[in-house]
Simulated scan of single mutants.
Amino acid sequence: MSKNQKIDEKDRQIIRTLQRNGRMTNQDLAAAVNLSPTPCLRRIRLLEQSGVIKGYGVEIDSDMYGLPVTVFVRVSLDRHTEANVKQFEQAMSKIDAVLECYMMTGVSDYLLKVIVADLSDYETFVRKHLHPIGGIASIDSSFVYGVVKKSGVFPMIG
């Protein structure tokens, strides 16, 4: 499977099943998607080689880990020069507390998903990691106080 080839419905079934339980055996996965094990494993390998499946991970309870505070941070840059954008994006890639960083349309340039231990830890994040970057026009923070839905499973197509 190359980057230009589209995945089919059976591939999507495999992906959605793995998104629900990435630890299942190939035997169980094959049964769940109604394939025999060898063709199922072949499809998985092709999905991995083509980059559709980028890796496997573990979902962690951030409270139990000791980082119970999730903050969505909207950042606007004061200038949109190539150097300013590159500086900001490189800084984001190096900060462990930033789990996700998205370039956005609309009022803000970036949306960050940040996890910290508490409000004091967030203040330290802003003062020691964001402010020194420079070129930031505004920082707008929204603290998560409840999760209504969180899913890593893609929706069906069609």
Rank of each mutant, 00 (worst) to 15 (best):
6 K>N: 14
151 S>G: 13
3 K>H: 09
43 R>Q: 10
62 S>F: 02
30 A>K: 02
57 G>A: 11
57 G>V: 02
26 N>R: 13
111 L>K: 00
38 T>F: 13
36 S>E: 13
3 K>Y: 15
146 G>W: 03
144 V>D: 05
31 A>C: 06
98 V>F: 01
93 S>D: 02
21 N>V: 09
98 V>E: 00
7 I>S: 11
131 H>P: 00
108 S>F: 08
44 I>A: 02
144 V>A: 02
26 N>P: 13
120 S>A: 13
67 L>Y: 08
43 R>I: 15
112 L>Y: 04
72 F>A: 02
41 L>W: 14
56 Y>Q: 04
120 S>H: 10
42 R>N: 13
1 M>K: 00
73 V>Q: 10
37 P>Y: 03
149 K>I: 03
38 T>V: 13
4 N>Y: 07
57 G>I: 05
70 T>M: 06
128 K>Y: 04
12 R>C: 06
67 L>C: 01
81 T>M: 00
89 E>W: 01
110 Y>N: 07
26 N>S: 12
67 L>H: 14
130 L>R: 01
9 E>L: 08
29 L>F: 10
41 L>C: 08
38 T>L: 14
120 S>P: 04
126 V>L: 05
16 R>E: 04
29 L>M: 12
79 R>V: 05
111 L>S: 03
150 K>R: 09
41 L>T: 14
24 M>T: 15
112 L>I: 14
56 Y>N: 07
76 S>N: 10
80 H>E: 06
15 I>M: 12
92 M>E: 15
54 K>Q: 11
39 P>V: 02
14 I>T: 01
57 G>H: 04
114 V>E: 11
88 F>I: 11
99 L>D: 15
139 I>W: 00
89 E>K: 00
13 Q>I: 01
152 G>K: 12
36 S>Y: 08
125 F>L: 12
86 K>W: 01
79 R>M: 02
149 K>N: 04
36 S>L: 10
132 P>I: 09
103 M>W: 02
8 D>I: 11
126 V>D: 06
42 R>C: 07
28 D>P: 07
39 P>I: 01
155 P>V: 14
83 A>G: 02
144 V>T: 01
125 F>H: 14
154 F>D: 03
148 V>Q: 12
41 L>R: 14
142 S>F: 15
134 G>P: 09
74 R>M: 08
44 I>C: 01
148 V>R: 13
11 D>I: 15
122 Y>A: 15
9 E>G: 09
134 G>K: 15
88 F>T: 15
138 S>Y: 08
72 F>C: 02
39 P>N: 06
151 S>L: 14
9 E>Y: 04
131 H>T: 01
11 D>K: 11
130 L>V: 04
